[in-house]
Write a protein that binds this DNA or RNA. Sequence first.
DNA 1: AAGCTTTATTTTAATACTAAAGTATTTTAC
DNA 2: GTAAAATACTTTAGTATTAAAATAAAGCTT
Lengths: 154, 154
Amino acid sequence: MINEQEALRTWLDLLSKTNALKKVVDNALRAEHGVSISRFDVLAALHRAGEDGLRAGALTQRLKVTDGNTTQVTARLIEDGFVKRRKDPKDGRVAIYVITKKGARLFNDMANTNKMSVVDAFGALSDPQMRSMRNLLQKIDVSRVSSMYEKDVA
Amino acid sequence: MINEQEALRTWLDLLSKTNALKKVVDNALRAEHGVSISRFDVLAALHRAGEDGLRAGALTQRLKVTDGNTTQVTARLIEDGFVKRRKDPKDGRVAIYVITKKGARLFNDMANTNKMSVVDAFGALSDPQMRSMRNLLQKIDVSRVSSMYEKDVA
DNA sequence: AAGCTTTATTTTAATACTAAAGTATTTTAC
DNA sequence: GTAAAATACTTTAGTATTAAAATAAAGCTT
């Protein structure tokens, strides 16, 4: 017999705090580097992937977006010279995205800004409190929600 | 001396879980009522405001969006007959939005869907665990983030 | 009371995202 | 070995959102 009111309140708090923090993190990234959080996410994934880069489909999965979105966000990063696009020689359908040196430099700067923002926001939480929060977050089970209509939520 | 790695991990977990849950909640609302979560939010605010409705500016503040966004989302709700728009007789600049009977009916149905989704997702958390989570969320202090660049985040 | 300033909202242009349709290439099944 | 099916990605049309410019009404100032 779960407490419905408390569940709804918890969800609202979770949503509003996450939104608020996302906004200030995004603002800091834009103000200091002129790049949005979604481009930062792409750069992070490609930076981590290294020289071999990632196929469009793999990027889509890691970022949990659609293929169309991946095409568009990378297109702008390519225009700005932060990412390059290669073809897979074995399979003509496949596009491989690789971060450039310039992109890697930008990513490192952005990662630093990002870290500072997060550290500021979480400054009042102790280590055990952060672990406790992660533990509680893990208990939220998205897969239980109206599976009748649910789309693929990995 | 905050643990930077743990803070970053906690933030990533927070972001990804919140996004995932938001997606399934939105999917359920769209599947059952054909209306997105952002329209639901407007209906919720107007339903709560009752017969007097809310001025555009007040709606903007409650939803933490911009005035332009409010204008557009309400425009579609008006087209569908869920909301009506009045003028303030005392001040010609002011627009007042009021939920219609049809809108109130829709809202009640949607609120039910929404509650079921949230209860499903939070089913594994006890009452004290939910309170603990809300308490931890409260400690995240958005106002500490790079105030140098920060925009107004109420 | 005419003009400047402020306030309240709307419009416009742009980013981010999705779903669905389209394109190109590969694989499978005869 | 070719036609159909599957795969990988891109394009297009539409929603959600913001920032900045535009509009319109009210309030001040002299």
